[in-house]
Amino acid sequence: MQALVVAVFLFAAAGGDADTKTVIGPKNPALARGAEALLAGDAEEGIRLTEQALAVAQGSRERGAAYANLCAGYALIEEFETAIGYCDQALEETPRNWRALSNRALAKIELGQYAEAEVDLDRGQEIAPNATKLKRVRARLLDITDPVTPTITIDDRRDPNADEDDDEGV
């Protein structure tokens, strides 16, 4: 599950509100710790912390990140249907969340839903065309639906563009 993307949501600092309070550190520490646990491969701890974070999440962005991370967590423990459900919710909160699209595509691939996965990848790459994670997931999909073998031709002929039919072959 190396291609799983975890939406790491760290609110570093915020300031400038009317009371001039400065918040140091993430607003939702459980969300950040949950993301770290998932990145470290500890899916159960990551899920536990992220569920805590979801309970106190403020706003669509935080909820979207929490749902996306839960999607990633459940995909890590290969509960792909549950993962898709959380990714669905992440995308309701944050429709342009390409990481959620990537994780949902990956879960769909694991369930054999290749056409549906491609739809998610197309949408994700419209949002983030240069995202390496999306490229990796698409490569995984193509390796299943359109497998290829790398072939290298080494041509020492003086005219490498010569028509093969003209060769005085052996």
């Binding site: 497998p147 073998t149 080494i154």
Partner: peptide
């Protein structure tokens, strides 16, 4: 002096 051409292709399995 010589030249060598490499062709990189992905052929369907």
């Amino acid at each position: 002096k010589t030249c060598r051409t490499f062709r990189f292709e992905l052929r369907p399995e």
